[in-house]
Design a protein around this nucleic acid. Structure first.
Lengths: 228, 228
DNA sequence: GTCTATAGCTGGATAGAC
DNA sequence: GTCTATCCAGCTATAGAC
């Protein structure tokens, strides 16, 4: 799998890196799946955009599902690891703040891809799309990639908010994921409504507004009981 | 178009209502588009599930796009109208509260379909899926349906939060849409993470937790300036 | 309005040469 | 590992009889 790595530095000389076939297919597939969704793009299209024959794609990945799974895992693993690392850092602090926990959870997800050679936010869009697809396949991919770091974050939140009932905390974590996913989806709705004044694609700006908003929500008094 | 109406009361007798072909196609299409997405379901599948010939479907709707557009508009119009009605009611009040405005915006969207003969939340899922698709067609459908009522809500929010800067308000409205859309998507993530303790499909429960959470977020002090 | 039949493509996946 | 060639199922949309 090591030749999948797209970040290999050429040994010497000015020759272009000549990305491997696998790396080209992964980069192109990520782009196209993000733009058009699982069913919106064919492996033929991906192969031809990556300048690879259809048969070669099938040789490397077999089923279409495998291609998506490998694309997803390649990006998701570093995100989940960075999350774990940041959460551990925050919790090693003498007095961890709610804001720091939220930032540690959100930042790796929102900035993923930004510093890569690809367009940035491409993976974020792909992830947002999968998050709203109810099919078992999409759910398993997301679950495998992010359940551990999500549980870790819920535990950290409970620690900085010891008085918040667990059920309330779960709902609020659900709302947190909603703001994160919708920001990653970059659906264009808010730009359209505000004439472009507010751009969820601007990650630093999004985090600067998102963290205080969520922190206030998490600190709100718990909801009352059902009217019954 | 009047025979599209699925709520016609039979004139007399115990005969089953015998829904029109159009009504059957709209109901079935809504269900299948919501479950599988725009590209995940063919008009053949819809026609056969509705017990209608493929040619009949094409006679009534022509392009596949028209079918989705009619399905969407049929549900979206009442939602947008109810929103407008509730917002007007709230604003006619001597001292409108932030909570009341949020409830007026969210309730029609989240409860749509709940009282219908279909599974409820079917339309909500469809809407959530379209909201994360970047294609122009999906965006136009959503924009046509909901831009007016969204703008109306932003104005109402500005009125109950006169000191909040406009840019901050726009970001927070974006976050509000995120929590709404993700709740409508009912992705199963939070159920999986909490062992089913928290269910976004339970609309009353969702609203009871969502409104205080968002209200606290909207009332937070505005975010600081960029670090620059 | 509804049907059967079909045109004309595109889809995922494979065979077999090199 | 990569290619050309191919299978065949499925797709949207239309034609034309009734």
């Amino acid at each position: 799998m090591s030749e999948t790595d797209a970040t290999i530095v050429p040994a010497d000389g000015a020759e272009p890196p000549a990305k491997s076939v696998r790396a080209r297919l992964i980069a192109t597939g990520e782009q196209l799946f993000a733009e058009r969704g699982w069913n919106g793009v064919s492996i033929r299209t991906i192969a031809s955009a990556a300048d690879v024959s259809l048969a070669a794609l099938n040789y490397h990945f077999g089923l279409k599902e495998n291609l998506l799974a490998e694309i997803f895992a390649a990006r998701a693993r570093p995100i989940a690891e960075e999350r774990m690392r940041l959460l551990a850092l925050v919790e090693a602090t003498p007095a961890p703040t709610l804001e720091a926990v939220l930032d540690a959870f959100l930042r790796p997800a929102l900035t993923a891809g930004t510093d890569s050679q690809f367009g940035g936010r491409v993976f974020a869009r792909l992830r947002a799309r999968l998050a709203t697809e109810p099919e078992a396949f999409s759910r398993r991919i997301l679950s495998d990639a992010f359940d551990d770091s999500s549980r870790r974050c819920i535990a950290a939140l409970q620690r900085v908010l010891p008085d918040l009932p667990g059920e309330e905390l779960n709902w609020r974590f659900h709302f947190l994921m909603g703001t994160m996913v919708y920001t990653m989806a970059d659906s264009g709705r808010i730009q359209a409504l505000t004439g472009g004044a507010c751009d969820p694609g601007d990650v630093e700006s999004a985090l600067r507004h998102l963290v205080p908003f969520l922190a206030a929500g998490f600190r709100a008094p718990p909801a009352g009981p059902p009217p019954s």
